[in-house]
Amino acid sequence: MRAFFTLAVLLSLGMPSAAATEPDLSALARRLDDLYRSDTCIARLELIAQNGPQSRHLQIKSWSRGREKALLLIEAPAREAGNATLKIGNNLWNYLPNIARTIRIPPSMMLASWMGTDITNDDLVKESSYAGDFVLTLEGRAAEPKGWIVLCTAKPGVVGRWQKIRLWVDDSAQLPLRMEYFDRRGRRARTQTFDSVREFSGRRVPTHMVFKNEDEEGRVTEIRYLDLQYGARVPESTFSLSRLEKK
């Protein structure tokens, strides 16, 4: 669900400027990190997980407060409706309504798939910071997609899944266009593309993201934001285990 939070960062990006001046990378990293920490947000999204011959369509509603707290509730299909995931800091709990049980995800399952998608539990709780964890360097102009290429390299000593992320941003360095994730062995493991820019709560953001797993042919996850409400009222009590079971 790193994608989900990445999207939250992107949602708070400001309006792009028309000039293709060389981007200020420190400002870009800070902006990404700051925007990632939006105070409150309620989102409704559609998730399509393609895994070989199988395809799953989920509709999800989410509530979040900053980077620390989030609640994800599957609303459709009916068979999966009511399944929920609660994140508080680095902890995750899953709730399954058919057995009415909430179970904390142990560290050993952090790299397991979240709800059968290409997103891992680890992606949900990771708190990577572009300014804190990566060194950004400008690689140059990109022809396709048109914009700038920025290389984000993990700082020495930073423990994380990605060694580097190659980031394509638009001319104004406001909207991401594409990201290539390289794992600790230097192999490209995931490619993420962004499109369908829309405006929510006065912010223009890409609402459609496609995650392609480069390790496994035919494994693709799509996320499409249907609605985003920044600054929506999200009570603190939303993020409790008892509320999780009442959702």
């Binding site: 199988q54 799953r56 999966e80 399954l96 058919n98 057995i99 049980r101 059968g116």
Partner: peptide
Amino acid sequence: LALIGQSADGAPAGGL
């Protein structure tokens, strides 16, 4: 015991 996993189609599966 509560058992939580995935069904063959990837959907969450659980049982007591």
